[in-house]
């Protein structure tokens, strides 16, 4: 593949095949957009003590689930009808896998929304919100960049997303230590800090899912599976 930036799925002899693949891609990106918004709103609901927004996020997860089912159905039909090969096959397989990650991110958003409602009911202090906002915006950017890498078939950007994950893990560890300090200072903080811990844990998982999406983007573009592969090896694959 000489220039991956030019790589498109719309140049088959069968126009209907083109439409099916482009439709699959578009619907995946729509689902990605929805999930991004769910995570953004969940963090917003939590840090702004906005229970109405939290309820909305919680209810919105059904829409994400429906999209997952619809996209899977479409992917299965493409395989049955077209027997895609090479980059087309990799697109369909990658979408089937990445849709699972997006759905899980949706679940994490719902989890955060539920915790937001609990925290709001327990009283209004901003303990731990700095950490939530910080890690939240970090993983949201990762998710956004991974979807962007998918839309543009940009393996280098996917690699950057994967490298971010280590930093998120470090931030998560640091935040956990801070919360532990709060708990030791005052045992009345324990319940609240535990809830915040769960939120951070959910956000950290979002970063992992963004990484999985990035791995699939590299698979789509380069044709090599970089899961469970050392970072140097992944860099070599992307650099090819």
């Amino acid at each position: 593949m000489p220039n991956n930036k030019d790589q498109v799925y719309g140049d088959h002899i069968s126009q209907r095949f083109n439409n099916e693949l482009l439709e699959l891609k578009t619907r995946f990106l729509e689902m990605g957009g929805l999930v991004e918004a769910q995570i953004g709103s969940a963090v917003q609901a939590l840090t702004a003590n906005d229970s109405v927004l939290a309820e909305q996020v919680s209810a919105g997860d059904r829409g994400v689930d429906q999209m997952e089912i619809g996209i899977d159905e479409e992917a299965i039909l493409i395989i049955a009808r077209r027997q895609p090969a090479a980059r087309d096959l990799r697109l369909v397989i990658a979408v089937i896998k990445m849709v699972v990650d997006l759905e899980r991110v949706g679940d994490e958003a719902k989890k955060i929304a539920k915790l937001a409602l609990k925290l709001e009911a327990e009283g209004q202090t901003s303990l731990g919100y700095v950490e939530v906002r910080h890690i939240g915006s970090h993983v949201q950017a990762m998710l956004h960049d991974s979807l962007d890498a998918f839309a543009r078939l940009d393996a280098e950007q996917a690699l950057r997303v994967m490298k971010e994950d280590k930093r998120v893990d470090e931030e998560y560890q640091a935040a956990a230590r801070t919360l532990l300090t709060h708990m030791m200072e005052d045992t009345r903080n324990i319940s609240r800090c535990m809830s915040i811990m769960w939120v951070l844990r959910a956000l950290e998982r979002v970063g992992d899912h963004a990484c999985n999406i990035a791995e699939n983007v590299i698979f789509m573009v380069k044709g090599e599976d970089v899961r469970h592969t050392p970072m140097e090896e992944t860099e070599r694959v992307v650099g090819r």
Binding site: L29, G32, A151, R152
Partner: peptide
Amino acid sequence: MNTMSPSISAEADM
């Protein structure tokens, strides 16, 4: 809810 994220406009661009 804003579902028209920048990643979709990048797709449209492409």
